[in-house]
Amino acid sequence: MFKPAQDLTIYHVAALKQQLEQYLAQSPSDMILDVSAVQDMDSAGLQFLLLTQQEAGRRQLKHALHQPTVAIKQQLAFLRLTPVFTFEE
């Protein structure tokens, strides 16, 4: 499980990219994102989320959003992206 250390916003995406690279370096068995603590997601954060999914697809890892917060769900719904992701509670 990959747990973003911070909110998914422009201020943190650079750090998140590093965190993701470190995570992938450990040859993980899945790319399930624990986003239960993410309170805020802007466009930069959304891109990061989409990137993880794309990267998971490329590496044939299972991708899902684990316990997304209301903020994330709302944002994805507004952008009509809900069907794009797999959610797990």
Partner: peptide, 12 residues
């Protein structure tokens, strides 16, 4: 959106 290696987290 590019692959991780080319991904600029602050690019749009």
């Amino acid at each position: 959106l590019p692959a991780l290696a080319e991904y600029d987290p602050e690019g749009c």
